[in-house]
Measured scan of single mutants.
Amino acid sequence: DRIFMTRTEALEFLLKAHQTAVDKIGHPSHKQTPADHAAIEALDRLLLDVRARRVDQFQINASAAQIIVTD
């Protein structure tokens, strides 16, 4: 599946995904793992790359739809 978004929409989408990941590892019942921190770092890099126009398409994980940034 493909989803087309403007750059602004894609950045909002990534910010929400980032916040969800941060909230998940901050929850008291969740045991933090290196994979959790790696996922947040990957989202940080992706946010910067989309914002800087170095990336025009991405996929958060293998089961997610491919996001295509349109400007």
Rank of each mutant, 00 (worst) to 15 (best):
T70K: 11
A35L: 08
D23W: 03
L47N: 01
R7P: 02
D49H: 05
D44T: 15
Q66R: 13
L48A: 13
H37P: 04
N61R: 08
Q32T: 14
R51Y: 10
L46I: 05
K31F: 13
D44E: 15
E12F: 08
T8W: 13
R54K: 11
S63A: 11
T20C: 06
Q32H: 15
D36Q: 07
H27M: 13
I68W: 10
I60T: 04
Q59G: 03
T20E: 15
I67G: 01
I67H: 02
D1V: 03
A64D: 12
A17G: 02
R2F: 10
I3L: 09
A52F: 14
T33N: 13
E12K: 11
L46K: 01
Q19C: 05
R51F: 11
D44K: 15
F58M: 01
F58Q: 00
R2L: 10
E9Y: 02
H18C: 05
Q57P: 01
T33C: 07
N61M: 10
S29L: 10
T70Q: 10
T6Q: 03
K16D: 06
P34E: 11
A35G: 10
S29W: 04
S29G: 13
D1W: 03
H30T: 07
D56L: 12
T33F: 06
D23V: 08
I40G: 02
S29I: 06
H30W: 10
I67F: 05
M5A: 01
H27G: 10
D71N: 06
E41D: 10
L43Y: 03
R54E: 04
E12H: 10
Q19L: 06
A52Q: 12
T8K: 15
D49Q: 09
L46Q: 01
Q19K: 13
I3E: 02
Q66S: 09
A21Q: 08
L14P: 00
A65M: 11
S63Q: 13
L14G: 00
L46R: 00
L14E: 00
E41V: 12
D71Q: 06
H37G: 07
V50Y: 01
I40Q: 03
R53F: 08
D56N: 15
T6P: 02
V69T: 02
F4T: 05
R2S: 07
A38W: 11
L46F: 02
T20P: 01
R54P: 01
